[in-house]
């Protein structure tokens, strides 16, 4: 039961993008079109889940075991970078069109703060293995939800009569702010 609460908490209540303001670069960069947003969300979810698994194992069986907690940041980054490389190769093989449309944002999953953030949160909150996996998946799903909502809004914005001064980045940031306010409605529902 607790794992499900953790999943919902990471995806909605404490959404990484809209409540913690992590991962804003891909959030603004890849939310122009619905299908790329969805695919980017899925790729990131895959990476966050795998990261949660790998970093939990590294932390528990290497770092805690040998009392090397100071290596947390650097080992986690190493694991994340390797995983993203793997995902990149996989996507390039399976869908070259998706690979192109994600462009620079695909390797930039490495530097997506959500991924490192969830690994470090999972450690400080002392999650068990399963909890950690669900936390990672929830973080990815939350990112996907935020991206999908944003891409929907931005596709509608294309047809809206936006004043010239607000076109492009300004109106997008305004929309992101309002979206974050809306998600603040979930605040305090869950405390895991």
């Amino acid at each position: 039961m607790r794992v499900i609460l953790i999943f919902i908490s990471a995806a909605l209540v404490n959404n990484f993008v809209l409540a913690y303001f992590l991962g804003l670069c891909p959030f603004l960069g890849v939310s122009k079109r619905f299908d790329t947003a969805l695919n980017m969300g899925l790729a990131t979810t895959f990476v966050t889940t795998l990261t949660a698994v790998t970093t939990w194992l590294i932390n528990r069986y290497l770092l805690v075991e040998y009392n090397l907690l100071f290596l947390q940041n650097v080992t986690f980054i190493l694991a994340i970078a390797a995983l993203v490389q793997l995902v990149e190769m996989f996507i390039k093989k399976t869908s070259i069109a998706l690979y192109r449309s994600l462009g620079i944002y695909l390797p930039l999953i490495t530097t997506n703060c959500i991924v490192l953030g969830l690994a470090l949160f999972a450690v400080t909150r002392e999650y068990t293995f399963m909890e950690s996996v669900f936390f990672g998946a929830g973080a990815g799903v939350g990112f996907t939800i935020a991206l999908i909502i944003m891409s929907g809004i931005r596709e509608e914005l294309e047809f809206a009569d936006v004043p010239k001064v607000l076109q492009g980045a300004p109106i997008t940031l305004l929309m992101a702010g309002m979206l974050a306010l809306a998600f603040m409605g979930f605040a305090g529902l869950l405390s895991v």
Binding site: L62, L63, L71, V74, T75, L78, A79
Partner: peptide, 10 residues
């Protein structure tokens, strides 16, 4: 140990 672990992981 940290050198070994980092090297091994890499």
């Amino acid at each position: 140990i940290s050198v070994l672990i980092m090297g091994g992981l890499g």
